[in-house]
Amino acid sequence: MSIQEFLIPLLAASVIAGTPILYAALGELITERAGIINLGVEGIMLVGAVSGFMMAVTSGNPWYGLLASMLAGGALALIHAFLTITLRANQVVSGLALTIFGTGLSGYLGKEYIGIPVPKPFEVIPLGPLGDIPFIGPILFQHDALVYISYILVVAIWYFMFHTRPGLNLRALGENPAAMDALGLNVFYLRYIYVVVGGALGGIGGAYLSLAYAPSWLENMTAGRGWIAVALVIFALWNPWRALMGAYLFGGIDALGFRLQVLGIQMSPFFLKMLPYLFTVLILVFVVARQKGRLTAPGALGLSYDREER
């Protein structure tokens, strides 16, 4: 087997495996940039997966399913927003509760939908001439529509965050909400929006699993990908491009393990499962060491904003 025959399917599989993590991580990235930590990603993904699936089965159209998953993910994130922004509850506790709640809720909602196929899942659409480019084409441009949308989304989020005024405001929101408030921006309103948008993206991450990756509904089908997404945001140092690369790296670990096994090379699966978190820890150590103790996390991340507090 030539090196190309090994690499192309491996890298193409990494892109697919990375896409659900990428959507969820982009959502979490926006949320954290606004200063709110949301550990409910796993629950949001599950609820997104089940509601997307239910809608796709009922309507026969995966795009309606996608819409439903965004609404459901956004609705769940709205609970988090209310608890943490309005009630100023502990963000970690609220997020964990959301994961438990989302897991239970998705199982309850999906009872009747287990073991039935999606009439029309998202299918592979090679992108014409782009898909024919040697090497790059089969890796990047022979996937389903949601993968292509994720490429656009990364560019859009990067441009928005670093090249527009609302994007600057978003970053400032996570650094120093009091200053934003003094400038006359509505901190509460903006944070609500970004948390809900983040949840909607998490919902898509779940729907990618139930409508494109392995089109079916099974309880707990995310199998911990929400947590990998949370780690990925830190790994990416809150930057969408690095989130993209990290998602494919994390997604590619499983794919690599399987393909090495086919070639007769045995790697400990426990070691492989550990790698995403190990990478994240290493990046943190590296960054902290280089910047003499200053991490690039948003300054006000995890802190409730209270106008009356001095």
Binding site: A17, L209, A223, D254, F258, Q261
Partner: peptide
């Protein structure tokens, strides 16, 4: 030909393992 996933329950990973075969 055998590929281990070390999972009982991860549809996406198990699908990918099958693809590699």
């Amino acid at each position: 030909k055998v590929v281990w996933t070390n999972t009982w329950y991860d549809p996406a990973a198990e699908k990918d393992a099958a693809k590699s075969l």
